[in-house]
């Protein structure tokens, strides 16, 4: 098994991870500042943190409720 060839691409993943982190933080900030969500808040917090990328997006699309 030879991973060395793949390892050289790891730096390319850094921007992707940064975007992912930014999205997660934006979603968490929104969640904390919001009074009402569809469903309990702590569930959304878990979804946002645990489901990479898709979690924050699902939250933004489905989790927010009009105040």
């Amino acid at each position: 098994m030879d991973f060395s060839e793949i390892q050289q691409y790891i730096p390319f993943l850094i921007p992707v991870l940064i975007i992912q982190l930014a999205l997660m933080i934006a979603a968490l900030v929104d969640l904390i500042r919001r009074e009402h969500t569809r469903g309990p808040k702590w569930v959304w917090a878990l979804v946002i943190v645990l489901a990479n990328y898709i979690g924050p997006i699902i939250y933004f699309v489905a989790g927010r409720k009009d105040e």
Binding site: F12, V16, I19, L23, A26, Y53, P56, I57, F60
Partner: peptide, 16 residues
């Protein structure tokens, strides 16, 4: 945050 979501998803796939 609509702009943020769309930008994040599209940029992700642009890079990936």
């Amino acid at each position: 945050k609509r702009l943020l979501i769309v930008a994040a998803v599209l940029v992700l796939f642009g890079l990936a």
